[in-house]
């Protein structure tokens, strides 16, 4: 077993998108592909995103590559507040992406679970679109 889902979920512009800006919604598949208390990584719009499922069932999403030395953030250990990069133990706030250990911040994404128990990621394309 070596197959890993590498393709991003289908692009799915939401009809109820409250933001007039360039926010794209991505459905990344069922939440139970992420075990409680762990993270899994996804490719979204050419970016790597780590999505975490906290032990209370809620979701968090951060960019998946540690700004320090490129560590795989989705492999980190988490609690309700932070994820710790497995390579050099830099800690990042799961809500904001800010480092608690002096590293550059990770980008934070907003993410939720929809009625069908799918992961829905909001990707704000900032102001500039390329």
């Amino acid at each position: 077993m070596s197959a890993a889902p590498k393709s991003p979920g289908p692009m799915n512009p939401s009809p109820v998108n409250p933001c007039p800006t360039n926010t794209r919604l991505h459905t990344l598949g069922p939440v139970d592909q992420i075990p409680l208390g762990e993270g899994r990584a996804f490719g979204v719009d050419g970016e790597q995103v780590a999505v975490f499922r906290l032990r209370d069932g809620t979701l968090r999403a951060l960019s998946a590559v540690c700004p320090h030395r490129g560590g795989p953030i989705a492999d980190g250990t988490i609690d309700r507040q932070v994820v710790i990069c497995p390579l050099h133990q830099h800690a990042f706030d799961l809500e904001t992406g800010c480092s608690r250990t002096g590293a550059e911040p990770l980008r934070a994404y907003s993410v939720r679970e929809d009625a069908e128990q799918n992961i829905v990621l909001h990707n704000e394309m900032n102001d500039v679109e390329n």
Partner: peptide, 8 residues
């Protein structure tokens, strides 16, 4: 055993 750096 899923990759954690899918685009790398």
């Amino acid at each position: 055993f899923r990759t954690s750096l899918p685009l790398t």
